[in-house]
Nucleic acid binder design. Structure first.
Length: 217
DNA sequence: ACATTAAGTGATT
DNA sequence: AATCACTTAATGT
């Protein structure tokens, strides 16, 4: 066993080993490769063809829907233990990505080549379960995202967004600019500035330049 | 000291 | 809730 495999196995032990059977872990170790990605690196962009699916070991990946003229909307975040099963099905169909995925917080990710992993669906019950669960979970998050778009006012959306961020980063102190929030929610900076000021005055957050602290989380 | 980037605000639609 | 136009504040060089 080479060092790469040993490292991989070690990383998997953290989280996935309790989820997958030993034989499956063995296969993952053999075909997968691990990569460390830094903030703002793009995993995949809309229209690109996917060849691998990611298993997130740590860090955070942000999944975004993008409109042609640069307008974006954040759909959900992927964290430890997550994969994007959507990308998996996309891979099987050899179709192009509907989403853009960028690293939100430095991440270690195992990439699995799709042609190798397809048979796992048949051979490994835990893998099947994992993929189905993941698909289900993404669907739920997508619906949540539709709900917030359709039914929530912008001030509620901002607050939810901040809370989601805190949850995912495990830190109530966020380093973020008004502009970045505006981009993620597809609105304008001025609107965010005003709503944040409102939240600040209501005592729900504390905000200063480049920083927001979510209170009573 | 100056330039750049982030944030705050009134007025208008 | 969005846009414009402008101001003020914070930060980098």
């Amino acid at each position: 066993m080479n060092t790469q495999e040993i490292i991989l196995r070690e990383k998997l032990d953290d989280y996935f080993s309790s989820m997958f059977e030993d034989e499956l872990i063995d296969e993952i170790v053999q075909v997968g490769y691990i990569d460390k990605l830094k903030n703002d690196e793009i995993l995949i962009d809309i229209g690109e063809t996917m060849t691998h699916i990611p298993l997130i070991l740590n860090g955070v990946v942000k999944v975004i829907r993008k409109e042609k003229k640069g307008h974006e909307l954040v759909l959900y975040f992927l964290e430890r233990g997550d994969t994007c099963a959507i990308s998996f099905v996309n891979c099987l169909n050899r179709s192009k990505s509907l989403f853009k995925a960028v690293v939100e917080k430095d991440a270690e990710i195992i990439f699995l080549p799709v042609d190798k992993i397809e048979p796992w669906l048949i051979n490994y019950k835990t893998w099947r379960q994992y993929i189905i669960d993941s698909y289900h979970f993404r669907l739920i998050e997508m619906v949540e995202s539709i709900d917030s778009l359709a039914f929530m006012k912008m001030n509620e959306r901002v607050y939810k967004y901040l809370n989601d961020k805190v949850k995912i980063n495990k830190d109530v102190n966020l380093e973020i600019t008004h502009q970045e929030i505006a981009d993620d929610l597809n609105t304008s900076r001025v609107v965010i500035t005003r709503l944040l000021k409102q939240l600040h005055d209501e005592g729900k957050i504390y905000s200063s330049r480049n920083k927001i602290r979510v209170l009573n989380f």
